[in-house]
Design a protein around this nucleic acid. Sequence first.
DNA 1: CGATCGTTTGACGGTGCTCAATCACCGTGG
DNA 2: CCACGGTGATTGAGCACCGTCAAACGATCG
Lengths: 299, 299
Amino acid sequence: MHSVLDRPASAPCATPAPAVIPLPSPRRTALAPLPLSGSLADMLRLMGLPGDAGASPAGPHSTVALPVWRVHEGAALLRQGEPAHTLFVVRSGSLKSVRTKEDGYEQVLSFVQPGGLLGVQALHGGAQPVSAVALEDSTLFGLSAAALPALQRQCPVLHEALWRSLTLELVRTAETADMMAAVASDVRLARFLVWLSRRMVEAGQSPRQLHLRMARRDIASLLGVAHETVSRSFTLLADKGLLRVDNREVEILDLPALQQRARSTRGWPGDAAAVSHAARHAAPAPVPTSWWGSLQPAA
Amino acid sequence: MHSVLDRPASAPCATPAPAVIPLPSPRRTALAPLPLSGSLADMLRLMGLPGDAGASPAGPHSTVALPVWRVHEGAALLRQGEPAHTLFVVRSGSLKSVRTKEDGYEQVLSFVQPGGLLGVQALHGGAQPVSAVALEDSTLFGLSAAALPALQRQCPVLHEALWRSLTLELVRTAETADMMAAVASDVRLARFLVWLSRRMVEAGQSPRQLHLRMARRDIASLLGVAHETVSRSFTLLADKGLLRVDNREVEILDLPALQQRARSTRGWPGDAAAVSHAARHAAPAPVPTSWWGSLQPAA
DNA sequence: CGATCGTTTGACGGTGCTCAATCACCGTGG
DNA sequence: CCACGGTGATTGAGCACCGTCAAACGATCG
């Protein structure tokens, strides 16, 4: 199985690529397909099987083997501008998805953890819109775009899982926007930490003990603030007794309070959009189950 | 034309819901299924057909009829928290996707234009993570989640198109992040306008004449600034001769200069992630293309 | 033990948020 | 017809927050 895909001539990512974007010489690409493979069933489990999938647990597909890739810390799995031909599902570790501007500024778009998708662009070809860099040594399942259609026909469960993951990814997008949208810098950080905490419980670990895999700069970029500000916000939250911070080791001491802080927004309800004047005065709803002033009562 | 769809009697946001959930009294919903239907082929064209689809242009599926929905300006197509059962493709008009916080603050996540997807959550059930409000009278194709699997099997081209749109949506996410990430407020606005301009050419219209469909507050929310700041940024760009602004009528006078302004980032390349100290000093590159320190050369 | 990089803290200045007033633009009703 | 209230857009004044610059400390690794 693995023998087939060992060293596919040149590393998929290493292909110098007729760069559309001036991406620089990758000095040493620490990316390699492992002489390992994982089962499809393992991957589906990571992706969170659709509910009805339990009905066919030991289908013939569960024994299908998939190539497993490894990236070392700091290495790029995907490079912005290079052609996309493989869809990845994170198996272990974590990566950051970054976008490089023309002037070299790097915007971190998201942190991706086990079960997360990378390289979705492969699904309909074209150049990678973003780069992906490993925050730690990580492994990923690789699904060749060319082989994908056949695989999906052959195994409907995979199709379901991919579909689900894709939409889930879209939903998570909103979370990222939430973090960047907060005004006060400590609120942004609080949201980030709450987000991380949630991901911890999803992974079956303690929601209070956080092991930050990324640098302050990365967090700063994601949140849209200066990295010094991230530091200051850390100490501020620590001073308030919500956290205990030791470099990249963070312990959440008061999760409810942290969540409370994360919830706070600058503006008034009226500041955002579409809140009608009448609603501001009349609506008593404490949990503003959305309503919108509906127009066009008559035509 | 409008005569056909005036007063569609009762609300349809309610229709599809055969008493599944107690709808929070939609006072008057200006949302209705049209007594019209569009062809599947029309929708696929809007979504940007996959390249290989041209091979089967006049397949049997091109005659399939789809229900068309209409939302009036200010009305909610989707409501955060309600069950998702329909996937929408914008046919005409435009909508905003918003997220309502517990305290009533509304975060605008994106503006959706013809060809765009709404209600993707319907693909795997659950509650709507976001609301969608029409910025103007709009029409949409509606794809029932229940019927979707069969439809896709029956018509592979639709499957392709959906897949493509989904990943495209994911890519556009990055654009939104870019806009919110810029530091200087006028840069954010410049990016937003450039983004809008690009969408105009995609729609086959002039890239310079912009008809803003959204309020300043909506823009402000999307960009993560106060709405007064949006106003100030508008006048600032106008004073510099890049724009001519008259309320929601914007004319781009100097597109290159606007793009230039949109490109500028606050910090120096060194501020973001992964740019090493050495790069700050040694790299003469005006376009300091990124690289990543690769670790773990050998395994 | 000395490099290098990441993190923290300080001081200062500027940007943008808050509060508030003004103007323009509706649709309604006197 | 023009007041009238309601809303959106623009502009101003004041001040807090945060970005910039700078330095010190800490960690990791050769």
